[in-house]
Nucleic acid binder design. Structure first.
Lengths: 215, 215
DNA sequence: TTTTGTGAATTGCTTCACAGCA
DNA sequence: TGCTGTGAAGCAATTCACAAAA
């Protein structure tokens, strides 16, 4: 359960995969799992699994493996998802709408509690997410962040507007931003940014395709 | 414009970022760009930019930099996005709907030309994407793939259904799969798979947050 | 000059292999 | 025996630094 400063980023990414797989094992009433089994399910080596987990503490038992429920709890704590995190979303286009109702977020401990857009026609519209929320004007952003102590924002506005929205979120005290805009956001040091570029993934696929034999 | 077999995967990922940034420079009528400028825009070192591009050919000119329009054309060719790629989508939930109308795909050369779902209530419904398409039953999958020679599929079905859909796509001759289901898909060797797990990205953010000082 | 392309050095990540424990 | 945790080895990616080109 330690939180070392010098953890390889890839190891942290895989932690999420371990958690997902552990939950699957848990649903099947598995009590323990070995690094070999966990690795096989995720196409990783057993050594990789052990190294990754060892960065954060000693969770396993020699000869037995890792206790599934306990390891789930530990990994959640490491990731900070053992408590529900309130999240706001800016930009209620098609993607924004889909994310508000995306159950995968709630399942992983993230609840979208507010949504913002600058289109007057959308203000007041109800959205069905984990809770029912109403679209609010951007002018309400700062107040909502303050009143609800929201620390994470999801940005689904068009690329040209993304930096301005990010600046505003940072100014209002947000600590983390998940952006779907295909631009590199610049933020002051103490704010974490993660970026998802959906088209990039298709481009990577496309690249791999050009290298494959075509029967 | 070579296509070496042994290119670091991270370099290929960055190629997409270079393309994006080059297009921004192009829109601003920049004729040439140096590795330093490109790197600064993306928070990468100039050496990194040069190394990455050099994996694929010699595009720059000493003392000048890289010619923007030519490099854009070359990178598109390397990624295989110089031609439009027809894509199908399986699973028209909220996320699937959003992706069908997502303009970022069309802008990068991917056109969703067919959408499938197994919910009888949805069959025949019209969706507004780049083109207008009708939701079709899964039973039509194989025929559509064959008739339109579709090589790439986007999977937005619930996790438990994803592997079965992937198997069917592979069986029908698809060459690449972009999956949004939070499971590791197993496919036979010659099919490329890319996976986007939206919740994972929030978890990574959450992890970073726990390490940051909270003012 | 400026800036590329690239071998060499370095850093970082993964795999190996085994001591130690149940 | 079966399996973890970990130093050491091996491999991969990044950065350095400079010769060559315009």
């Amino acid at each position: 359960m330690a939180k070392p400063e010098n953890t390889p980023a890839p190891a942290v990414r895989r932690l999420s995969l371990y958690l997902r797989q552990l939950e699957t094992f848990h649903a099947a009433d598995r009590r323990t799992v070995s690094s070999k089994q966990l690795g096989e399910a995720l196409s990783l080596s057993d050594a990789q699994v052990r190294k990754d987990l060892a960065y954060f503490g000693q969770f396993g038992q020699s000869g037995i493996g890792y206790p599934v429920p306990e390891l789930i709890a530990s990994v959640r704590q490491i990731l900070g998802t053992d408590k529900v995190t309130s999240v706001l979303l800016v930009g209620v286009g098609n993607l924004g709408r889909a994310l508000v109702s995306y159950r995968g977020f709630a399942e992983r401990g993230f609840e979208i509690v507010a949504a913002f857009d600058n289109d007057p026609a959308k203000i007041g519209e109800s959205l069905n997410g984990a809770a029912r929320i109403q679209i609010q004007p951007l002018s309400a952003l700062e107040k909502v962040i303050r009143v609800h102590s929201i620390r994470v924002g999801v940005v689904t506005v068009p690329a040209p507007a993304a930096q301005a929205v990010a600046d505003r979120l940072v100014e209002a005290g947000i600590r983390g931003i998940l952006s779907f805009a295909p631009v590199r956001l610049r933020v002051e040091g103490n704010v974490a940014v993660a970026s998802v570029d959906l088209a990039v993934n298709l481009e990577q696929l496309s690249f791999q395709l050009t290298g494959l034999a075509d029967p």
